[in-house]
Design a protein around this nucleic acid. Structure first.
Lengths: 241, 241
DNA sequence: ACCTGAACACCGTTCAAGT
DNA sequence: ACCTGAACACCGTTCAAGT
C-alpha cells in the first residue's frame, strides 16, 4: 500500500491550458471548500467532481476511494491549527492554546470533526500537532509513555467535543429536543438527572476549559502506564473488551 | 415534536396471524440485529425492511426517519450495559466497572459506538446510565455542577475510544497502515513522535483503565465549575468557538 | 390506519471505450 | 496515461394508490 499522503506525480498538460488542471491537490482543495460550505453532505465524490466540471469517475485517477479523500481533506483542514511556539506562556497554557485552536478549527468546519473521529489522522498536519503536544508534555515533565497515551486522550476529547457540538448545531432548537427531554425527565425516576438538569445543559467555552483542566490535572497525577497494570479493577482484569 | 421514545400505539391485527406483526419494537429489534451482524452498513432502512419482508416505505408508519431509528437502536443497544449496584466495591471501582461495561457493549457491536457519538443519547437506557454515574459521583463527594460536566466527559471518552477501536478493526492489518506510517516517520522531522512510536501504538485494556484513572483523578482535583471562570487562558477568554 | 410499488433524487465504484 | 459516459448496485424519502 502506498503512503496516501505522498504527492502523486501527474503528467502536466503541455502548455498548462485551463484554470484547474485537475490534480490531486485541486480535488482535495475543492472538497474541503464544499465540506466547509455545505457540511458533510456536500462532500460527495460526485459533487466534488461536478465542482471541477468532470464526472465522478475521473477522480479515481488521483484518489483511490472516498475514504482516502476524506483522510486527505481532514489533514488539509488541520493545516489551520496554530502550532506556533510562544515564549511568554508556560507549557500548560500553550497546550490549552493549541488544543483550543484545534477545537476551533474542528467546530468551524461542520463535518471536519466527524471526519477527524472517523479517520486515523496520519497526515503531515496531524503529525505536526501530535509532535507539538508531545513536546509540550515533555516540557511539563510528563514521562514519555504517559505522554504518548495522553496525546490520544487530549485530541480524542477535543475531537469528540467538536463532533458533539456540530451534531447539536444541526438540531434546530437551542440545544435541541434533548434539552426538552431532560427537562421533562420524571423527578422520581431519574432524581439525580432532575436535580442536575440545569448544569447538564449549561456549557460553552468554560466547559471545554474545565475539561482540559481535568485531563491535564489527571495526566499529571494518575499513575503512569508502566509494565505493570496501574489500577484496573482487581476482579475483572483483562476481561476481553 | 413528539417524544421519540414514547411507545407508539398501533392497532393490533385481529387474531395475531404472523410471526412479526411489524411493530416499532420489531423494527428496532431487527435493526439492532443487523447492526450487530453486519456493521453500520447493514442497518439501512431498505435492509431492515427486507429482513421484515416489506418495502422500506412501510417503516415510515412507525419511524419518522433513519435518524430516529438510529436513536432508538442506540438506546436499545445500551440496554446491555450493566448498571447494577454493588455493596462490595467502592464508588470509584463501581464507576470504572460501569464505564467498562459501557465500553464493552459499544465495542462488541460494530457501529454502535459511531451511533452513540452521532446521536444525542436520551432514551431510557442512556438516561439510566447517566443517572447511575451521577449517583456514583455523588457518593464520591463530587459536587453537583462538577458531576454534571463529568458525566459528559466520562461517557464521551468511552464512546470515543470505542469508536476509534471499531474504526481500527475495520483496517485489515494489525493496527492498520497508521502503524506503518508512524513507524516510517522521519526521525529528524518528528523527533518526539519517533522517540515515542512504540508507546503511541501500544494500547488495549490497560490504556483505557489508565484513561479512566486520569479522568477520575482530574475530576476530583480540577477546580470545579463555579459562577466564575475556572482557569481559562486569561488573554483569550470567551473567544467565539 | 396501515401497507405498498413505483418513482425521485441521490450515492460510490467499475468498466469499456475513447483520446 | 488520463478522461469519460454509462451502467451497476445501492441509498433515504415521498406519494398516489390500494385495502
Amino acid at each position: 500500500m502506498r503512503d496516501p499522503f505522498a504527492p502523486r506525480e501527474v503528467k502536466s498538460r503541455r502548455g498548462g491550458p485551463a484554470k484547474e488542471p485537475l490534480s490531486r491537490d485541486a480535488i482535495v482543495k475543492v472538497a474541503l471548500t464544499l465540506l466547509t460550505r455545505d457540511g458533510p453532505q456536500g462532500m460527495s465524490l460526485r459533487r466534488v467532481a461536478a465542482a471541477l466540471k468532470t464526472g465522478a469517475a475521473s477522480l479515481y485517477a488521483y484518489v483511490d476511494s472516498l475514504e482516502e479523500l476524506e483522510a486527505l481533506v481532514c489533514d488539509r483542514g488541520l493545516a489551520a491549527v496554530k502550532t506556533t511556539r510562544s515564549a511568554k506562556l508556560d507549557w500548560r497554557a500553550q497546550l490549552v492554546e493549541l488544543l483550543s485552536s484545534y477545537l476551533r478549527v474542528l467546530v468551524r468546519t461542520p463535518g471536519l470533526a466527524q471526519l477527524a473521529m472517523r479517520t486515523i489522522a496520519v497526515g503531515p498536519n496531524a503529525l505536526g500537532i501530535v509532535e507539538r503536544v508531545l513536546e509540550l508534555l515533555d516540557e511539563g515533565g510528563v514521562e514519555r509513555g504517559t505522554a504518548a497515551w495522553a496525546v490520544d486522550l487530549l485530541t480524542l476529547y477535543v475531537a469528540a467535543i467538536a463532533a458533539e457540538q456540530s451534531v447539536r448545531k444541526k438540531q434546530s432548537d437551542p440545544l435541541g429536543p434533548a434539552a426538552r427531554l431532560i427537562n421533562a425527565v420524571a423527578a422520581d425516576q431519574y432524581p439525580m438527572i432532575f436535580a442536575a438538569r440545569e448544569e447538564l445543559m449549561s456549557g460553552g467555552f468554560r466547559r471545554v476549559a474545565w475539561g482540559l483542566d481535568v485531563l491535564i490535572e489527571g495526566i499529571l497525577r494518575a499513575p503512569p502506564p508502566g509494565p505493570r497494570a496501574a489500577r484496573a479493577p482487581a476482579n475483572k482484569r483483562h476481561k476481553h473488551i
